[in-house]
């Protein structure tokens, strides 16, 4: 039996195309919630005066936190109820179930602090097929670049999704 390829030319054409930029806000309460959820103990994530005493503009983002996209009720959300960093849609995709395969964060030496507004630009970096325990799978790699108000690249988040 010949299996039909999952990835069509139409799908391949979206690789590398950037989605509409999203505005992402980094605020103090959100940083504190994130830091509490992880269990961070460094006051640099909680106490603004302490963070300023360490040379930061305000409390700073813990690893893995890059703010939240501004949500309004007219915006669609994904399966996890989140409108953050939505990559471009994949035309003709029939696989519906998604597993989170992995995450990478890269930083470029700039502080990302409460009060910052970032621009996030996402794209599908790669599509691959694999056959594994879940049958035929599509391995989707997304990349989101985050730019600060000066237009400087401050962080990159790369995600791997497994669709099956």
């Amino acid at each position: 039996m010949t299996e039909e390829a999952i990835i069509t030319d139409e799908m391949r054409a979206v690789i590398g195309k950037e989605a509409e930029p999203l505005t992402v806000e980094v605020d103090k309460t959100a940083i504190r919630w994130f830091a509490r959820a992880v269990g961070h103990t460094d006051l640099v994530y909680y106490d603004e005066a302490y963070a300023k005493g360490k040379g930061h503009r305000s409390i700073i983002c813990p690893p893995g936190f890059l703010g939240h996209a501004i949500h309004t009720p007219d915006k669609p959300t994904n399966i996890v109820g989140n409108s953050v960093k939505r990559p471009p849609a994949i035309p003709g995709l029939k696989l519906m179930r998604l597993l989170n395969g992995g995450t990478e964060f890269e930083y470029y030496g700039e502080d990302i602090c409460a009060g910052d507004t970032l621009k996030s630009v996402s794209k599908i970096a790669d599509l691959r097929e694999r056959t594994g325990g879940l049958g035929r799978m599509l391995i989707l790699t997304t990349e989101s670049n985050f730019f600060n108000a000066e237009g400087k690249l401050v962080a990159t988040e790369r995600g791997t999704g497994i669709m099956y």
Partner: peptide
Amino acid sequence: HGALKNAFLGQLLHD
């Protein structure tokens, strides 16, 4: 959550 474990590894490094 997978991403929480990623954030734990971030704390491991930060600390």
